[in-house]
């Protein structure tokens, strides 16, 4: 690993050679482009994060119902059952996914699940064709940090201990984490989906493990475990 080439003199470039590399205008342009991209990414990251959470929740809910259904009746086709439709999959905001409707599918659960992400627009038509008596409605509440996301980000901001090693090496980056919020509102099963490097990832995991309690997700008023993803950005103050 330690491979150095000890030199007592080298062949330094002349002033003219160095000057030809100087380009302040280009530097300004690069800076401008990065600042612009960062702003765009910041707004996109929030939207994308919420979208990922929405898809995961829908996955959990539909698999829950799928399991329940299998316990009750082994014959899959044309049986009465409930499933979650993707009312939030097309929306990108938190407000839109606060409630999810449960209703009867016309097809088998497998078919419904396949068609779910691709055909949210066809749902209203299906809804009207369903027998009213069989229609059920489930109210789903998304898990959320007590005090809201602003308070949570304040907590991260306050408790973040930038790893000294990463600081020395000037390492920055965003860690994408996945975790569950259990029925008590505590984080568990914290894992890194996309890391930066060991010390930074560990600090991100620590922050998530020790973060204040959440309001757990609720289905019909019953607390339930939900999966969440969150991105933490590590940036050095120079």
């Amino acid at each position: 690993m330690k491979t150095y080439q000890i030199m007592f003199e080298d062949d330094p470039p002349t002033d003219m050679e160095i000057n030809q590399y100087q380009n302040f205008e280009q530097l300004l342009q690069q800076h401008k482009a990065i600042v612009k991209r960062r702003k765009l990414l910041q707004s996109l990251a929030l939207g994308a994060g919420l979208l990922v959470v929405t898809f995961m929740l829908i996955g959990i809910l539909s698999s829950d119902h799928h399991e329940k259904k299998q316990e009750v009746s082994p014959e899959p086709v044309q049986e009465q059952e409930t499933m979650v439709t993707d009312s939030a999959a097309s929306g990108q905001t938190a407000e839109k996914k606060d409630t999810l409707h449960l209703k009867e599918p016309v097809t088998s659960p497998e078919q419904s699940q396949e068609s779910k992400p691709t055909k949210p627009a066809s749902n209203p038509e299906k809804e009207t064709s369903l027998p009213l008596a069989a229609e059920k409605e489930a109210v789903f509440m998304e898990a959320r940090p007590v005090g809201g996301f602003t308070a949570l980000y304040d907590y991260f901001e306050e408790k973040l201990q930038y790893p000294e090693t990463a600081k020395t090496d000037g390492v920055e980056g965003a860690v994408l984490l996945e975790f569950e919020i259990d029925q008590e509102g505590a984080a568990r099963q914290v894992s890194v989906l996309q890391g930066v490097r060991e010390d930074i990832d560990q600090e991100a995991i620590r922050l998530i493990r020790q973060m204040p309690q959440w309001q757990p997700a609720q289905l019909n008023g019953e607390p339930m475990t939900s999966k969440q993803t969150l991105s933490l950005t590590f940036q050095l103050d120079q």
Binding site: T3, Y4, Q5, I6, M7, D10, T168, D169, G170
Partner: peptide, 21 residues
């Protein structure tokens, strides 16, 4: 900043580092 960038460069590239004496 330069020191950190150089460190990062050698960490990524596994090139031989010059040491001037």
């Amino acid at each position: 900043i330069a020191h950190n960038e150089v460190m990062q460069y050698f960490r990524k590239n596994h090139k031989i580092r010059k040491v001037m004496v």
